[in-house]
């Protein structure tokens, strides 16, 4: 799987390259600035891009802007954005084209290598990977939403994991229940929220995120 990496800190860049190579990713180019990133993304059209939000020359949200711009020119280009902090505003911007194939994670998550690699693969496959912190904030704001209040604690747990972008299988493994039980919870959640249940994992996640973003 071909990866373009955008990260300006040498230590982190080398670490990420080593990590990705260890899991059989092919890092075709690693760049350290916003403009170079956009160029590399358009030139290589990688299977997935792993991008730091803050990049030179402005050291603001240069990486995010480059990624958004690249996705505008190459619709559906999978991008996993890493950041020292999560901002719902940015999550909303990344999800705004409803295309899927986006991820937004805290840099800390790299420490859990297996989870991180799973997230990269998921994004490359057109799925989503939202940081649990984003979802926690979204759900906290959802407290005043009537349908959300009717969910059982277990259903809320499933909803949170689903919103992070995990498949039914992954959720089942995480909660130590059968995949069938997760499917039942999912059907209940969608029923209570008044959403249309789709067979496709990715479409389901996007519907949930869109719902949470609205409340």
């Amino acid at each position: 799987m071909r990866v373009v990496l955008g990260e300006d800190l040498v230590l982190l860049r080398d670490g990420l390259i080593r990590l990705l190579r260890a899991y059989d990713f092919d890092v075709v180019e690693a760049v350290d600035s916003g403009p170079a990133l956009l160029e590399a993304l358009l030139a290589h059209r990688p299977d997935v891009a792993v991008v730091d939000v803050r990049l030179p020359p402005t050291f603001t949200d240069e990486g995010l802007r480059a990624a958004t711009e690249a996705r505008k020119r190459v619709p559906g280009l999978p991008v996993l954005v890493l950041s020292q902090y999560v901002e719902q505003l940015y999550a909303r911007e990344l999800l705004s084209d409803r295309g899927g194939g986006v991820g937004y994670l805290l840099k800390d998550r790299v420490a859990d290598v297996a989870q991180f690699v799973d997230a990269v693969r998921r994004v490359a496959a057109g799925g989503t990977a939202m940081d649990p912190e984003v979802i926690t904030q979204l759900l906290a704001r959802g407290n005043r939403d009537q349908p959300l209040a009717t969910l059982t604690p277990r259903e809320r747990e499933v909803l949170a994991l689903m919103a992070e972008g995990r498949s039914n299988g992954a959720i089942a493994a995480r909660l130590f229940v059968t995949e069938k039980a997760v499917g039942k919870h999912t059907a209940n959640i969608f029923g209570k929220l008044g959403l249309e249940l789709s067979e496709d994992d990715n479409r389901r996640v996007l519907a949930v995120l869109a719902y949470l973003d609205r409340v």
Binding site: R54, F59, T60, D61, Q84, Y85, E87, L89, Y90
Partner: peptide, 11 residues
């Protein structure tokens, strides 16, 4: 975040 929120610098 308490010293200078990154999003303020960004946006």
């Amino acid at each position: 975040r308490g010293i200078h929120p990154p999003v303020l610098a960004d946006r």
